[in-house]
Design a protein around this nucleic acid. Structure first.
Lengths: 345, 345
DNA sequence: ATGAAAGCGCTAACAC
DNA sequence: GTGTTAGCGCTTTCAT
C-alpha cells in the first residue's frame, strides 16, 4: 500500500489484479462485472482510500455536475434563503453548487462568470448586477444554460423565475388607500432593476386606479441598501406635508427605514403607516408588527434549479420559460387609519 | 474560425501559427516569447474567444485555486457575514470559494467533504456539525489544509479562529449581576459545540465569581434555532420564580426568545432584562433596544482565509495556530435594574 | 525564442 | 467479463 500522494485508478487496478477499465466499471456502477471481481475492487478502493478525481472525469465527460450561483449581495437574507432552495434540489440530483457574490458590481460579475466558465460549470443561476446583460455574453457563446432569478437579463434569452412585483406592491398600496391614506410615499429601489422598477410601477398603478394623485416629493430613490432606506425616511420626514404611509421596496431598506423612524421619533402605525416588500426578522416583534409583502424564497430557489436542470438535461431547443410567483400581503399592525397629523385632515 | 464547441489551446496555436507550448507560455505570463509572437497569440485568443480549461490545468498542476467552505446553516446570518470576509480575501489571492451548508448534519458534512476532495479543493474552512471530527479524517489523509471556524475539531490538528465565548458571556452576565440581577437564566446552545459549551461556562463562571447561586431551573437547553429560543422563553416564563434576566446563547435563539416574550406579554427591560450573544438586525429598533455581545464576523472570515492560505502556500510543518478574537458587550436598553416583580424582592 | 512530446487520471470504444 | 488503448486540454522538460 503506497503512502505517498493520492491513489488513482491504476493503483486500485493493480491491487485488485484487474485492468483500469474494470475498475472504472464498478466505480460508475455500469454492471457487467463478476461479483467476485467487484468485491475485490471495492475492497481495494477501501484499503487504498481511493477517491475519484473530478478533474480527470470532467476532461472526458465534458461535465462537472456543478452549477454556479451568482448573487449581488450575500448579506441580504433573501439570497441565502433562495440558495437554500437551490442547494436542496441540487443535492437531490447530485449537483454541486458554487456561490459567488458580486457586491452589485458588473465588473466583478464578469470575472466570476469567466471563472465559472473556466471551471466548466454546467449551468448558472444568476441575479445579475446589470440587467442589460452585455457582460453576460460569454455564457451564451459557450452555450451554458442560464436561469435568471428576480432580475431579468435583457440581452439573453433565458429561463427565469420572477415574483409578481407589480401585483405585490399594488396590493400593498391598495390596502393603504382603502384604509384612507392618500399621502403615500414609496422608497424606490434602483429603477434599472426589474424589482426596483416594477415595484414602483405597482405603486403608480394603484394610485392611478384609485385616483390618488402622484406626489413627486413622496417618491424617494434608494438603492436597496439599509443606509439608503434610512436616508429616505429622513427625507420623507422633512417634506412639507409628511406622508401618512410609506411603502419600502425591499427588506434592507425597510430595516433602515425603521431605524430612521425610531431616531426621528416618528411613530410607526400611529403617525405613519408602513408596508415593506419582503419579510424581515423583526417584523413580528416590533410594536406594532410590520405589515409586509412576502414571497416564497425557498420555492424560488427550487424552481430555479429545476429550470436549469431541464436545460442541462435536454440540450435541445426549448421555448424560454418564465415563472411568475405570487407574493402575498401580510397585514399586521403597522398600517392603520391615517391620522392626518400634519394638520390637513 | 471554427464555431462548434469551445476552442482549445490547439486552436489558438494553429491560428497564431505557433506551437501549443508557446501559447501556454503567454497564457501563463512566463515570458521568453518574442513580442510579435505574443501579439499574434493574444489576438488569436481574442478572435477565438478562448478560455482556459480549469480541469486540464488541474490535472497537471495538482491545484485548483479553490477553497471549500462548509457551514452548518447558511440561513444563520452569521455565516454569510463570515463568508463575505473569506471571499474578499480569497479573491485578492485569486482563489475561488465554494460554499456548502450541512444543515447541522454530520452525514451531509461527510458527503460534502468527499465531494470537495473529488474536486480537489486546495483547502477547507469549516464550522463543523460534529466537533468530534471522526468524519473529517479524509481531509487529513489527503493532506488538505483545514481551518476551523467558531467550532473546534477534536480529532484534527488544525488552525482555527475562535471568539472568546467565555469572556463575552462573562461580561454580559457580570453586567447583569452588577445591575442587581440574581435570577439570571441562560438559554444554552448545544453543549457538544464549543460555542454552546463555552457560553455556558462563561455564565457559570460569572455567577460563581459573584457568589450568585446557580439555579438549575434557569438553565434551559436550546439548539441554536429560532424555534428552540422561542420554546426556552416559554419554559422560563412558567418557572415558579421567573428569572429577572435572560442570556441567550446565539442570534437565532435571541429572535425566537423575543417573539416569545412578545407573545407572552413579558415586558422586555421592565419585567425581564436581556442580553444575547451575537448582534441581530432588530436589536436597535426594538423598544427597548437589545443589549448584545458582538463579534467581528468579517474579520473572522478574513483571518480564516489568511490562515488557510499560509498552509496552502508553505506546505512545511508549522505549529498549529489559534486565533482568539475578543467579542464586545454592547449595552443598550434591554438590561435594567431588576424589578423583583415575582414578589420575592 | 520556439517546438515536440510525455503524461496528469479517467472513460469508452473496441477487442478478445 | 475483462483488457487495451486513444484521447480529453494542458504544462513542462528537453531539444533545437
Amino acid at each position: 500500500m503506497k503512502m505517498e500522494s493520492k491513489p488513482n485508478i491504476q493503483d486500485v487496478a493493480k491491487l485488485a489484479n484487474v485492468s483500469i477499465a474494470t475498475v472504472s466499471r464498478v466505480i460508475n456502477n455500469q454492471g457487467g462485472v463478476r461479483k467476485a471481481t467487484e468485491d475485490r475492487i471495492v475492497k481495494a478502493i477501501q484499503d487504498l482510500g481511493y477517491i475519484r478525481n473530478a478533474a480527470a472525469r470532467t476532461m472526458k465527460n465534458k461535465e462537472t455536475k456543478t452549477i454556479g450561483v451568482i448573487v449581488p449581495d450575500i448579506k441580504n437574507p433573501f439570497f441565502p434563503l433562495v440558495m437554500a432552495g437551490i442547494e436542496q434540489k441540487a443535492r437531490e440530483k447530485e449537483y454541486f453548487t458554487i456561490l459567488s457574490s458580486t457586491n452589485e458590481s458588473p465588473i466583478v460579475e464578469e470575472e466570476i462568470v469567466k471563472n465559472f466558465i473556466e471551471r466548466g460549470v454546467d449551468g448558472v443561476i444568476i441575479t445579475t448586477a446589470n440587467e442589460n446583460g452585455d457582460h453576460l455574453n460569454l455564457l451564451q457563446e459557450q452555450g451554458i444554460p442560464v436561469v435568471a432569478v428576480d432580475r431579468s437579463i435583457k440581452k439573453l434569452e433565458v429561463d427565469s423565475v420572477f415574483v409578481d412585483n407589480i401585483k405585490g406592491t399594488y396590493q400593498a398600496v391598495q390596502h393603504l388607500i382603502l384604509q384612507g391614506h392618500r399621502d403615500i410615499a414609496i422608497i424606490c429601489g434602483p429603477q434599472n432593476t426589474k424589482p426596483g422598477l416594477e415595484r414602483f410601477l405597482g405603486y403608480q398603478k394603484a394610485l392611478e386606479d384609485y385616483n390618488v394623485p402622484l406626489n413627486e416629493s413622496y417618491i424617494v430613490q434608494g438603492d436597496f441598501s439599509e443606509k439608503s432606506g434610512y436616508e429616505a425616511a429622513q427625507k420623507l420626514f422633512h417634506t412639507e406635508h409628511k406622508p401618512t404611509a410609506i411603502f419600502s421596496s425591499n427588506n434592507l431598506m425597510t430595516i433602515g427605514c425603521m431605524k430612521s423612524l425610531k431616531d426621528l421619533g416618528w411613530k410607526l402605525g400611529e403617525e405613519v403607516s408602513f408596508i415593506g416588500f419582503d419579510d424581515v426578522d423583526i417584523a413580528t416583534f416590533m410594536e406594532p408588527k410590520l405589515s409586509v409583502v412576502t414571497r416564497p424564497m425557498n420555492t424560488v430557489g427550487e424552481i430555479a434549479f429545476q429550470l436549469l436542470h431541464d436545460r442541462i438535461s435536454f440540450k435541445d431547443a426549448m421555448p424560454k420559460r418564465e415563472y411568475l410567483l405570487s407574493p402575498e400581503l401580510i397585514v399586521r399592525g403597522s398600517c392603520r387609519l391615517p391620522q392626518f397629523h400634519n394638520g390637513r385632515g
